[in-house]
Amino acid sequence: MTRDTIALIGPPAAGKSRVGKRVAKLLDLPYVDTDAVVVAGHGPIAQIFAEHGEPHFRALEREAVAEALRRPGVVSLGGGAVLDRDTQADLGAARVVLLTVRPEAIAKRIAGGKRPLITDLESWKRLVASRSELYASLADYTADTSSRPIETIADEIAQWVLASEAQNPDPQNPDPQTEGPA
């Protein structure tokens, strides 16, 4: 793992995949969506949950996350990937961006039922409340995706990465936590 790895974390439907793709393009880095890696290798996440349970999915997710964080690039993690202690430790070697989103902006994003731990807005709120402190503790930079254009958010993240690399190119001495515009 290197500080050339930018990891996007946050609650389900915060926009990690959409933002991550744009940040990778702006920085000319490879992009990996760990949920997509799991789906490509094992089928739909909801099906994995239904047939094998959450612990099995988390093991597959951990494997995908560990592999993705070993290389330079932009990595979008599934919302619950940060629950794993090994993943938390691995994130210490990456630049971690937390994407947040307000509940009033989330309703359309969670429609369609493809997220097994979220059945409605109230279940999303409970899930986010249970993880928000952990998300914040892992983040080097935070951006809210509730209402601003994804392109603007991605550009701000890319600028932060470039500025933090210029200020502190030493991967053994990570930069201090920064709050981005929300």
Score class of each variant (00 low, 15 high):
residue 107 A to S: 13
residue 130 S to Y: 07
residue 159 Q to A: 14
residue 89 A to P: 06
residue 121 L to W: 00
residue 23 V to S: 08
residue 101 V to R: 08
residue 54 E to C: 04
residue 81 A to D: 02
residue 102 R to S: 03
residue 111 A to P: 05
residue 121 L to G: 00
residue 156 E to I: 08
residue 41 G to C: 03
residue 43 G to F: 05
residue 55 P to R: 03
residue 117 L to R: 04
residue 141 Y to T: 11
residue 125 K to H: 09
residue 116 P to D: 07
residue 135 Y to H: 04
residue 77 L to H: 00
residue 127 L to W: 11
residue 95 R to A: 14
residue 171 P to H: 10
residue 53 G to D: 08
residue 166 A to N: 11
residue 26 L to Y: 07
residue 16 K to L: 05
residue 110 I to V: 06
residue 35 D to N: 03
residue 156 E to K: 09
residue 81 A to W: 00
residue 84 D to F: 05
residue 7 A to Y: 04
residue 172 Q to D: 15
residue 50 A to C: 11
residue 148 R to G: 07
residue 103 P to N: 10
residue 21 K to P: 03
residue 145 T to L: 00
residue 126 R to L: 13
residue 54 E to R: 02
residue 94 A to G: 12
residue 51 E to M: 13
residue 71 R to T: 10
residue 126 R to K: 15
residue 137 S to C: 08
residue 51 E to K: 15
residue 134 L to T: 15
residue 153 I to R: 02
residue 126 R to D: 12
residue 120 D to F: 04
residue 45 I to N: 07
residue 6 I to Q: 07
residue 59 A to P: 05
residue 45 I to T: 07
residue 60 L to V: 04
residue 33 D to Y: 01
residue 98 L to S: 04
residue 55 P to G: 05
residue 29 L to S: 12
residue 130 S to P: 11
residue 160 W to Y: 12
residue 147 S to Q: 09
residue 12 P to T: 14
residue 181 P to Y: 09
residue 61 E to I: 03
residue 157 I to Q: 06
residue 165 E to C: 07
residue 103 P to F: 04
residue 62 R to V: 00
residue 134 L to W: 13
residue 79 G to K: 01
residue 85 R to K: 14
residue 53 G to K: 10
residue 53 G to A: 10
residue 121 L to T: 00
residue 78 G to W: 03
residue 62 R to Q: 09
residue 60 L to H: 01
residue 77 L to Y: 00
residue 111 A to N: 08
residue 135 Y to V: 02
residue 143 A to P: 05
residue 32 V to G: 11
residue 20 G to N: 10
residue 119 T to K: 14
residue 13 A to D: 04
residue 125 K to L: 08
residue 158 A to E: 10
residue 177 Q to L: 13
residue 48 I to W: 01
residue 82 V to Q: 11
residue 11 P to K: 00
residue 90 D to V: 02
residue 57 F to P: 05
residue 25 K to T: 15
residue 141 Y to I: 12
residue 83 L to I: 12
residue 161 V to A: 11
residue 32 V to C: 14
residue 13 A to E: 03
residue 136 A to N: 05
residue 97 V to F: 03
residue 165 E to K: 10
residue 122 E to M: 06
residue 125 K to Q: 14
residue 80 G to S: 13
residue 181 P to E: 13
